[in-house]
Nucleic acid binder design. Structure first.
Lengths: 197, 197, 197, 197
DNA sequence: TATGAATGAGTGTTCATTCAT
DNA sequence: TATGAATGAACACTCATTCAT
């Protein structure tokens, strides 16, 4: 499990484990923010987010001193979820299905990012590690799934996780991508990924 | 020439062809807006745009009653310029060079769009024709250049304009694209576009 | 007449003379701000000032981009008024009366300053000229009135304007000064200022 | 010893003399508040004060239900310290030195008041006794020291404690007083206080 | 009892839009 | 007609105060 509330505390230490109500609100806020961003765009107001979470703005600000911190938290949480999905897939599914279903999850993740791209760039500028680290984690997760499929003889071997991501990622960022189309494209990619013959 | 100031008047008719000074102001405003968007992002203020154009806000509002209209005008103007470039290329360059140079222009156009993607989506929502019509015009322009190159035997024939655009367009939207990288990718695409042998 | 709306434009030049309505509002705002500061203290809100002036906050901000600029404008205006009073007194009153009445005006001015002392210090920090320049102008005005009285043989000669200000000014800043008391003290000072015999 | 924690309980009675740890916290809070006011101005936040004292805001509010109560406590404590200094001086120093050193302490006290003058006025408004009572206590302390010096023949006799305070106090409130200058002025006052011849 | 999380009214400030000049 | 002054809703953010833990 990678999902770790306040995962930005890289060097964890004792760090007094958030009070129960605070943690509940933290999660509630991240979820609310994602919903509001999705619904009203990445420039939604702090008030709107707090209201969606059913708390006062003050609470929102206690957890996220600056607006950009909310964006970062939503993004981190999305990435965590994606990585978790890869690990859960490894446990529950066969090598090929795990890879295929994770790629679908990735497409959703990438689509979700688009609604607050502007804000995300700001967050990246402020904290370059966020971008680099996340990309690396995602590529690694993809790599693990791919290698597993390759070792099972279910995926062609002349490609690695980074190549695959370089192919799928830009495809997702395409502004005018509807779900049906992305599914068609993904299917094509998956077909191409089968070992020859 | 496709450039048509105030081209949103779909049903053209006589439509009084705008006084010379008014037209000059209109163009000045669109150019200023593009500059300001590029420099300060898609959420630049109306004041900033008016100041850049050297006029009062009032004048800006005479031409564009709502902020979103400025965004739309800049976008339309970008598209017009792109279409014009295709037509000019047909006159001045050989079939292959015209295609290649237009694709480079397309990359620039696509990059420029990114700074006001949010605003553009709004404009698309408000006026779906804008999106569809522009896409169609661009695909058509691409198609004409491609067919011409194919008929001259300078491009492979198993691809059409829409395919080519579907390939190049997502590539451009990719967030982390620097000019050198986009040039490398474009070169690769152009190589792949040559007829086999 | 020293009172000059927007007197901070030291190098005047043509500088396009404020539109009539704008100038009216400028003066209205400075007066309103003084009233509100007097009534509610130096930390009164911008909304309160705008409302007192009968305009929207936006208007207040057009004239004074930062809160501190309001404080500065009120102060500059107070100083201007004080200097004007000195000049008017010279025209209308005998040497001694002019001096005495101006000192009374000074006491009022100093008392008025006290309600926004904190804010004024901020303004001084930001713009040291404000403090130095104002002090100099006041001392000079005092000096002119004193010299005139001395030349008329109505004031003792072993004191100059700066001395007099150094005496009266701290007296005024005293936190717990009520009008009656300040009048008693000022009378004492004036008595001491008469030429011996 | 005049220092009386929670001295606002004018009618003392039994009044349960506060548990040792509570009293320790109380003092800690007052000291912290003074430090924070000095450092960050009289409008420092309650959070800042609590943090400086190393306690939670809750604790701060247990002792001081309203923000203004903190201001009042700091002020009362300052006055108490000043009165104590007078009494300690009487025990440890000769009549003249006790007076001189206490006046220096008074200057420090007065300077300290300036950082939260606004807040203090509020406290005075809410509780006029605070102002009057404190002034009286200070004048009395000054009077006792002065009388002792006069009886020892070390100070002129045509002046009383109130006169002396009326002279020194305004001098201190003067906004632009640096320590060196205040020392010069105080020296002058002390010289003038020596008996003639 | 001490803590610090939650609250929400209030602040300074911005900016799309309207309207007097 | 062009100008830029006026408007006020909206925003990010703060902080005194209350209340669950």
């Amino acid at each position: 499990m990678t999902t770790e509330v306040m995962s930005e505390d890289v060097a964890e230490g004792p760090a007094k484990p958030m009070r129960a109500d605070a943690r509940r609100n933290y999660e509630r806020l991240v979820d609310a923010a994602r919903r509001v961003f999705t619904e009203h765009g990445g420039d939604a107001s702090m008030e709107a987010i707090a209201k969606e979470a059913g708390v006062g703005v003050g609470t929102l600000y206690r957890h996220f001193p600056k607006r950009i911190d909310v964006v970062e938290a939503v993004y981190r949480n999305d990435v965590d979820t994606l990585i978790d999905a890869a690990e859960r897939g490894t446990l529950d599914l066969g090598p090929w299905d795990a890879l295929a279903s994770w790629l679908r999850a990735y497409v959703d993740y990438a689509q979700a990012k688009k609604v607050f791209l502007n804000e995300l760039h700001e967050a990246f500028d402020k904290n370059p590690e966020l971008k680099l680290g996340s990309r690396e984690r995602i590529w690694a997760a993809c790599g693990r799934l791919l290698v597993r499929a390759q070792e099972a003889g279910e995926a062609r071997s002349d490609i690695d996780g980074e190549d695959l991501m370089q192919l799928v990622s830009p495809m997702c960022v395409h502004a005018t991508l509807d779900p049906a189309q992305s599914e068609r494209l993904l299917t094509m990619v998956l077909d191409g990924l089968r070992p020859p013959h």
